Structures are given as structure tokens and as C-alpha cells.
Simulated assay, not measured.
Amino acid sequence: MSAIDTPVRPASPAHDELVPSRYALKVGEIEVLVVSDGVLPLPTQTMATNATPADLATWLQHMFMPPDAFDWPLNVLVARSGGRTILVDTGLGGQFPDFPRAGQFPMRLEAAGIDLADVTDIVITHMHMDHVGGLLVDGIKQRLRPDVRIHVTAAEVAFWQAPDFTHTSMPTPVPPVLRATATRFMEEYREQLRPFDDTCEVAPGVVARLTGGHTPGHCVVDLSSGGERLTFAGDAVFPVGFDHPDWHNGFEHDPDEAARVRLALFREVAQNGALLVATHLPFPSVGRVAAEGDAFRYVPVIWDF
């Protein structure tokens, strides 16, 4: 039995949380763990920049969400396949004091009994700070093995050499922080980066593939084993996207392309029956997509424990 599917007692009382923060499942022979990195408070207008304020307010009320700000879930993934342990994204990190409820991933990984020294591969869906920041926490790089492989698309690496924010609609302080965090990440992990073009088989049944949209180099990760499938969609999918896939998110660098990617992904997983996990869906973010004509519905799985 592995640490993923065997309950592990917290290493210290500090890890003894009342609210569950990890969820284990299997995709065929691939062991999967979804881990919550916490939540990130954001203004609601970033959720739908091309919707009218009245339409957005109606949707928020319908979803019992506050009108001005909301908690953005942050999920990361751990997978074990073919003797390799893969992290998909790494959360925000603890270096942003304005977001004290995020950056929980390193502690929660340790509480799950997973040693960073056992990680062989890391897939970065894109280089926004809530996806690479966990690697920039003090002491994390020293705990990783020197030969860890960090997979990111070549298009993403190229984009952050001179990032374009002209089509985004973020809070004003955010772009400089995103740029600085991506730059620091590339500087600190340049030797471990393994850029790829369109697809990359990270481990048996674990494939990263370029989608673009949210950022030019955004990728998703497909798990496939024994006739079962799971897609980790990164930031291609947001909660509002099931009801309004054409609504633009303020953090999308190419909103029109992001909407096309989102629709294509919904159609794909609705057809192939794959489980869907995404960074910003409510934890544990494991469900399926049902298609009803041109409309989509998210169907959470029943927790199995």
C-alpha cells in the first residue's frame, strides 16, 4: 500500500486540520491525490469581464456567492505511475503575506506522508504565481532531488520572456508580481526545466499537452489507465464556465482563445467520460461534465472513503 491510499497520521498537531484537504482516488493503476493549497480571495469582477454587472450579479446570487469578493480554490495534483511520482502545479507558496489562507501545499503534502525527495517530475500547467509559487518557498528546492524534471511547454517559457497583459483585466498590482514570480522561477529552476512543444509523456499514462488560451503555453494533464481517464485542466476551467463558457476570466491572456479551449475541453470530457479536476473548482474538484445541447453541467463525484 502506498502513502497515497493509506491514511497517514499527521506528523504534528499543526497538521491536524478539521477540514479535509486531500482526496485520494485511482485512475486504473495510477494513484492520484488531489491536495488543497488553500483559497485566494479575489474581486468578483475578475470572474466575468465581458458579462454585464447585472448578469454577473444574478449568477453570483444564484450560486449563493458574495457580490464583491469570493474565495478562489487552489488545487494541485499528485500522481504515481510507473515508479514515478509527479506533482502537477505547486500552489501559491507562503511568500505572499496578503494571502495567508493559501500556500498550504508543502505542509499538506508532508501531512499526507509524501516526501518531496521522492518527487521525480513536476508539471507546470502555466507560470502564474499560484501554480509555481510553491517551488519558491524557502527550503523547498533543497528538499527536491537534484535531477527532478520540471515539464512546461516551450511556448510558456517563451511567453514569460516578455509577457503581454494587454488583454487581461487583473487588479493593478498583480501583473508585476506575476512577471517577477515567473522570472524568479525560471532563474532558480533553469537546469531542471524540460520544455516540450505539443505533448509530453511524463510517465506511463500521464501525458501533458499544450492547449494555450489562458496563457499561450497553458497545458493540461491527461491520466489514462485501465480504460479510466482523468484530465487536470489547470486554469482552462472555472466554476462559472459551466453555465457561461463564453465569459472571460480577467486572468486570461487570450480570452477568446481561452473560451474556445474551454468549450473544446468540455465537449471532450463529456464524450470520453473522463473525470475532471481543475485548479479553481471547489475542493476536491473531482467530477464529470454532462453535455445538454450547447449547455454543460458539472457533476461532482460522490466521495469514496
Rank of each mutant, 00 (worst) to 15 (best):
V177N: 07
K141R: 15
A48R: 01
R108T: 12
A233I: 05
R288P: 15
Q45I: 01
L136Q: 06
M170F: 09
E201H: 11
L135N: 05
P245A: 01
V220Y: 04
A258H: 02
P97Y: 00
G133E: 04
P53C: 04
K26Q: 15
A24S: 15
I302G: 15
L87W: 01
R267K: 12
R80P: 13
V221E: 04
P73S: 14
E268C: 14
H131P: 02
E31M: 03
A208R: 01
V277M: 03
D147V: 03
V119G: 03
R101Q: 12
N272T: 08
P171T: 06
E257Y: 09
R229W: 05
G94F: 00
A291Q: 15
L87Y: 01
G226Q: 03
R288Q: 14
H167Q: 14
G82Y: 08
F105N: 08
A155F: 04
E292Q: 14
L42M: 12
F96M: 06
A79G: 05
V174D: 11
A233S: 09
V174W: 13
D243T: 00
I302C: 13
Q104I: 07
F305K: 04
P176F: 08
D138T: 08
P66F: 03
E187N: 11
D115F: 09
R190Y: 10
D256N: 05
L18A: 14
W59M: 07
T231L: 15
R190C: 14
A14W: 05
H126Q: 03
E187H: 09
V221D: 06
V152Q: 04
G113D: 07
R101E: 11
V19L: 15
D68M: 09
C200G: 10
M170I: 07
D294Q: 11
P173G: 13
W303K: 10
L265S: 13
S81Q: 00
P239A: 03
F296M: 05
S224T: 06
V132M: 10
N272Q: 09
R179Q: 13
L263V: 10
G94S: 09
L223N: 04
D118T: 07
A180N: 06
K141A: 15
G93E: 00
F165R: 03
P97L: 01
M1N: 06
P195Q: 07
H126K: 01
V88L: 12
V137W: 04
E191L: 12
S12T: 07
E292S: 14
T49S: 07
G103N: 05
L263P: 05
F283C: 14
M170N: 08
T215F: 08
H131I: 02
R260S: 13
A154L: 07
T199S: 13
A54I: 03
L56E: 02
L92Q: 03
I140A: 15
L18D: 11
D294F: 07
D89W: 00
D115Q: 07
G91F: 00
A14H: 06
E29W: 10
E187G: 13
T49V: 13
H62L: 14
A69R: 15
P43N: 06
R194E: 09
D243W: 00
A14G: 08
V78L: 14
